[in-house]
């Protein structure tokens, strides 16, 4: 049995994303941004803090200005600006705090179809290989003395063909490792959602919601 916060964290982030989309609380937004910053610092991911500052900079300020100039004034403008930052904070927290593989495996054990889970896992795990493949096409051309630019149609045509052949290879390989759509699987690692993690996150959720009434 392994305790995991993958599902707790994902639900926490999902609910808060929905909540800030429909509520108009600047303080809740700022609370979430602060929470995310503390979380990144606690995880020793200083880079994520910088990313959080820079990534939403242009969209946040352009929304702010457009609402200021053409919209209903500074109250809405600040709300939308902080909301943009809060969305970015939640998104980055998901990227930093949730191990996607673990989340998918937890979901499988909660009864989500294994075809869906393992299909996604193959894609997630082959992403670096796909990146390599694109680089390889570029290098292959270079090695024959020609430079290939990103607008060359060859890139896209080849990648589509590759995706088709890879799909067949992966399916065959999964079958050869005993994967069976209809088969019953066991689990070497049982996951349970951590109770203390769930309590912590619910606590934070309630504190955030109290801010709505202040």
């Amino acid at each position: 049995m392994k305790k995991t916060n993958a599902l707790n964290m994902s639900l926490f982030i999902l609910i808060l994303t929905l909540e800030i989309s429909f509520t108009r609380s600047v303080s809740l937004n700022i609370f979430l941004i602060g929470l995310a910053v503390l979380f990144f610092l606690f995880q020793k991911k200083g880079g994520s803090v910088i990313l959080l500052i820079l990534l939403p900079l242009i969209p946040a300020f352009s929304t702010y200005w457009s609402v200021m100039l053409n919209g209903s004034g500074s109250e809405d403008a600040i709300l939308l600006m902080t909301r943009t930052y809060a969305f970015a904070a939640l998104g980055l927290s998901f990227a930093v705090g949730v191990d996607l593989e673990e989340l998918l495996l937890v979901l499988e054990q909660k009864g989500v179809a294994p075809n869906f889970i393992y299909g996604l896992l193959v894609v997630v795990h082959s992403l670096p290989a796909i990146k390599n493949e694109v680089r390889a096409i570029q290098e292959a051309s270079l090695l024959k003395g020609k430079k290939l630019y990103f607008w060359s149609p060859m890139f896209y045509i080849k990648t589509i063909f590759l995706a088709f052949t890879w799909r067949d290879h992966y399916t065959e390989a999964m079958y050869s490792h005993g994967y069976d759509e209809t088969g019953v699987r066991t689990h070497q690692q049982r996951y349970i959602s951590s109770l203390s993690g769930a309590l912590w996150l619910s606590g934070l959720f309630f504190i955030g919601n109290i801010l709505l009434f202040l």
Binding site: E101, Y170, H177, Y179, Q188
Partner: peptide, 20 residues
């Protein structure tokens, strides 16, 4: 393109879980 999982250990576990 022979592996579903990220590491060999996880791939072996995946295969043996498939066998139940």
């Amino acid at each position: 393109q022979q592996f579903t999982m990220r590491t060999l250990r996880k791939e072996i576990i995946f295969a043996l879980e498939n066998l139940g």
